[in-house]
Design a binder for these strands. Structure first.
Lengths: 134, 134
DNA sequence: GACTTATTGCAAATGATTTGCAACAATAGC
DNA sequence: GCTATTGTTGCAAATCATTTGCAATAAGTC
């Protein structure tokens, strides 16, 4: 990855060791900040949780990483270049899979096309209400 | 509400003042524990946050109240007898509205039937993966 | 009305995330 | 390559939502 293709440096931010490590730790599967910390620990990469959080926030701002929220009160992060998609999470082992779904899909058919036994789902829309538009 | 129709007492739990107050504070619109606390404070009802949490947990177990999760890391609670539905939340003022949607609805058409300007949505499925199914 | 034990209030603990600040290190310019 | 500038880090402490321990209290039972 040379300078001209590095989106972090292109945006005017420094390419530091911890920053590189956090970015490299991000995968297709959503990981929490502490999971990323554990991952770095396993690879003997010294680091600090606060730095991980700060870098995740930066990567989100640069649209390189996306935040994902599940049922617990923990923020997870995954690569942002995977296109819009949704997740299916196992209540017992926590396994996460992507689920194929787009705006022209019926929820019912999306649900039936998985090997999971689905118990429930959560769907929230975010945007601006009439009053706050403008 | 007499004894025979009170689901809390029917389930063998005591009907206490704080419990009644928490249950009464639950509305059709999702509220956080601290919002419920503020509400009680405004009505000069002495209370404790821990008690609110404990009672919310009980009400959820009794299926009288449902948990709702939005984008932030705060759990909200709403009446459970409203049937399955979804929410649309204003990014600016936080206004919450229910959104009409069922399994036979196309996401696209649901999105177009609101006065909100929708920026994004979040959809997660929960259940058991193949391995954890028995 | 007295007894049993669920429930409360309060304080302290927990876990995720954020923040202040001085030491440090990545870059730009020389 | 050397130095100055200032973005970043590490560490500790602060915050916020939520949970837990425990003794005091009160709901429901007989």
């Amino acid at each position: 990855m040379n300078e001209s293709t590095n989106p972090i440096r292109n945006a005017g931010f420094r390419m530091t060791g911890p920053r590189k490590a956090v970015f490299a730790a991000i995968t297709n599967s959503p990981l929490s900040a502490s999971e990323i910390s554990q991952h770095l620990k396993q690879n003997d990469i010294p680091h600090d949780l606060a730095t991980i959080y700060r870098n995740l926030e930066l990567l989100v701002r640069l649209l390189l990483v996306s935040k994902v929220k599940f049922d617990d009160n923990v923020t997870r992060y995954e690569r942002a270049d995977m296109g819009h998609h949704h997740h299916i999470i196992c209540d017992i082992c926590g396994k996460v899979e992507d689920i194929p779904l787009n705006e022209d899909t019926l929820l019912a058919s999306a649900i039936s096309q998985t090997t999971f036994q689905i118990k429930r789902h959560s769907l929230e829309f975010f945007g601006l209400c009439k009053k706050c538009q403008l």
